[in-house]
Nucleic acid binder design. Structure first.
Length: 141
DNA sequence: GCCAACGTTGGC
DNA sequence: GCCAACGTTGGC
């Protein structure tokens, strides 16, 4: 239907290793180290301008901000075989109110989202509908 | 090509 | 720190 919207994703990171604040401090972050085929396919489908929820896993368990894909379709420099993908992202804005995994699981319209269905996927797809719901929750208070 | 064993990830 | 879910590997 409406193809005039960017694609939406959710990228996970452990704040201990590389959190939202680290991304903001750097200005632009290389998203590499993904070694899962489903996640790789998502990475390869990303285009410049796509928007990503930035999710803190293990610690925090919440979406803390929105990042934008600044460079797409690059190979993972930490990989010698050349078969893994990476992208670069820039911080766009921090959420007014972080949206926790608990909130997401409590929202009936979000129980089917990739984040909930495949909890171990580090790069998940978000539909425009899911994006809008989560954005509303982030503004909700 | 199938299935069991193992390792890793992530929520609790 | 523990356990469940998923992916990958290796034997047959």
């Amino acid at each position: 239907m409406s193809q005039d919207r960017p694609r939406y994703w959710l990228i996970k990171s452990e704040p201990d290793e590389y959190g939202w604040d680290d991304l903001v401090a750097e200005g632009e972050g290389l998203w590499e180290g993904v070694r899962n085929h489903s996640a790789k396919l998502n990475l390869q489908a990303m285009e410049v301008g796509d928007q990503c929820f930035f999710y803190h896993s293990r610690e925090g368990l919440e979406i803390v901000g929105i990042a934008e894909v600044s460079v797409a379709g690059i190979g993972d420099p930490t990989d010698d075989t050349g078969k893994w993908a990476a992208v670069k992202v820039k911080p766009l804005r921090k959420l007014d109110n972080p949206v926790t995994l608990k909130q997401i699981k409590a929202e009936p319209r979000l129980v089917d989202c990739e984040l909930v269905r495949m909890s171990r996927l580090s790069v998940a797809k978000i539909t425009p509908e899911e994006w809008d719901i989560i954005c509303a929750m982030a503004q909700g208070g």
